[in-house]
Design a binder for these strands. Structure first.
Length: 438
RNA sequence: GGAGAGGUGGCAGAGUGGUUGAAUGUACCUGACUCGAAAUCAGGCUUACCGCAAGGUAACGGGGGUUCGAAUCCCCCCCUCUCCGCCA
């Protein structure tokens, strides 16, 4: 949720920057009018409430003193007030609702210095790591590699046909060594974050309620991207819950509606979960292979921090995601997203893009964002600051990493001329010493 | 799935229509006493919003209703706990 104080204190400058960065127009005059209306209504409502309260109190006192005459006088005097109060309360909450809706539907304000741009073409490369390997044979993509690998009687190690039969397009079945490597990858990532990066491993629900989706911002705007799970309630009606599109939702909502003890910050959380996305609006994009699926696994990192620490923690988080790629010896680059390519909630985002030989390009494998107080405000996630005031925390999230895409990257970068795939050193311990998928 | 109990301030726990934003205990903060601590005593101690301020408004799981007035009465929902049944 957008910070209303930015609009109250610095309306024009905020509007200018939102226009320039996000291309988002704030109707300055409309906001000022709405605020003026709200203020007038609130003052009026509170005066009426005060009047009612005072008279009601007097009625009580009169009755206590058995002064029935006075009591009925007072009752006659208040008679008309509750109606006026009610009318004002309704008007006030309608206006507040409009203000709220406005704030809820606005994207976060990008940090100053965010590169301006309209899409991924305008992102700015921050650094590269590793050198793409040159192959002395024609490289295959992960689909060709995986389908050529045999899981014995069970068939291909990578099997889209069976997945389509079971579920439809954009699902995958993995078998044998490849399935094992997929599992090994998640274990390896989790172990690294827990043992070397000091994160707390979490197991979390994959189905969450609407409040949680609201908290992290998937709702109300992006309902189409979610899978809904209807669940019967006691009175026989059905309420939707949702499959998580990322464990950011589960992890970040840990602190919804709570005051986090300041001395526990920052919280560094990680979880390995499947993620479910309907990919509405992505029809025709990345239809081949397992780059874009309805279901995929991800190891997620979520930080809850004090506002003053979040910038440095974002750098730390990106570094931890990079660490995974470095250990796997996969070439990648770090990209600072431009204003047009950032998610609506983000104030600052880095993407990690891994080299995919078959596509001869870098593809996103992680996205790390500082959401600042944008989620915390709508979630009611606060901590007591040094001045003793409750203040929204900052939330950060990042993939560390997308497991499926990492598997793709390994298959393509570690492929051999004979169709086998070398297992990266760091994974062999997780795979009973297996050195090659063949 | 069946039966029952309950959701009040950081925690525990009173409060069943009126001067109760809320007794009491505990935790915490400040001060006194002390060489220091403990104990004891005194004071303070929910949050959000409006207001220059004085002060005011709202909030007792959430929403609606009754009433001049609701933590308290009525309706709906959510959640937690206990027992039985079923079950990975």
């Amino acid at each position: 949720m957008f910070d209303i104080n930015l609009l109250r204190n610095d309306l024009q400058a905020t509007a200018d920057w939102m226009k320039k960065s996000r291309g988002f127009s704030i109707d300055v005059a409309a906001f000022e009018a709405l605020e003026a209306e709200r203020k007038a209504l609130q003052i009026q409502t509170q005066e009426l409430q005060q009047q009612r309260n005072a008279l009601s109190k007097a009625v009580g006192q009169a009755k206590a003193q058995k002064d029935d005459v006075k009591a009925s006088q007072l009752l006659a005097e208040v008679a008309a007030v509750p109606e006026k109060v009610k009318a004002n309360e309704l008007a006030l909450s309608a206006v507040q609702e409009r203000v709220n809706t406005m704030l809820l539907t606005m994207p976060n304000i990008p940090q100053p210095g965010t590169p301006l741009g309209k899409d991924s073409d305008d992102n700015v490369e921050a650094r590269r790591w590793g050198t793409p390997k040159s192959f002395d044979f024609e490289v295959k993509d992960h689909v060709a590699i995986g389908e050529a690998l045999s899981a014995g009687g069970a068939g291909m190690q990578l099997d889209f046909e069976t997945a389509a039969k079971l579920s439809g397009a954009r699902f995958v079945v993995m078998k044998g060594q490849l399935a094992r490597m997929h599992r090994a990858l998640a274990q390896f990532m989790l172990d690294t974050h827990v043992n070397e990066h000091g994160m707390t491993e979490c197991y979390v629900p994959y189905i969450v309620n609407a409040d949680s989706m609201m908290g992290t911002g998937q709702l109300p705007k992006f309902e189409d991207d979610l899978f809904k799970v209807p669940m019967a309630t006691d009175d026989g009606t059905v309420k939707n819950r949702y499959l998580i599109p990322t464990s950011e939702v589960s992890l970040t909502n840990f602190v919804r509606d709570s005051i986090v003890a300041a001395d526990t910050l920052p919280l560094r959380l990680t979880a390995h979960t499947p993620c479910f996305r309907s990919e509405a609006g992505s029809a025709g994009r990345d239809t081949r292979g397992m780059i874009r699926q309805h279901q995929f696994d991800k190891v997620e990192m979520v930080y809850i921090s004090k506002p003053e620490d979040s910038d440095a923690l974002l750098e730390e988080m990106v570094g931890f995601a990079e660490k995974i790629l470095q250990k796997l010896e996969l070439p990648y680059r770090v990209v600072r997203l431009c204003t047009g390519d950032m998610g609506a909630g983000s104030a600052k985002t880095y993407d990690l893009e891994v080299w995919l030989p078959a596509q001869n390009t870098y593809r996103e494998i992680s996205s790390c964002s500082n959401i600042e107080a944008f989620q915390a405000r709508r979630m009611g996630a606060r901590y007591k600051n040094a001045a003793g005031k409750n203040e929204p925390v900052h939330t950060l999230n990042g993939s560390g990493l997308a497991v499926g895409r990492t598997l793709v990257a390994i298959m393509e970068n570690y492929q051999n001329a004979d169709g086998s795939v070398t297992v990266p050193e760091v994974l062999r311990g997780y795979m009973g010493g297996l050195a090659t998928l063949a």
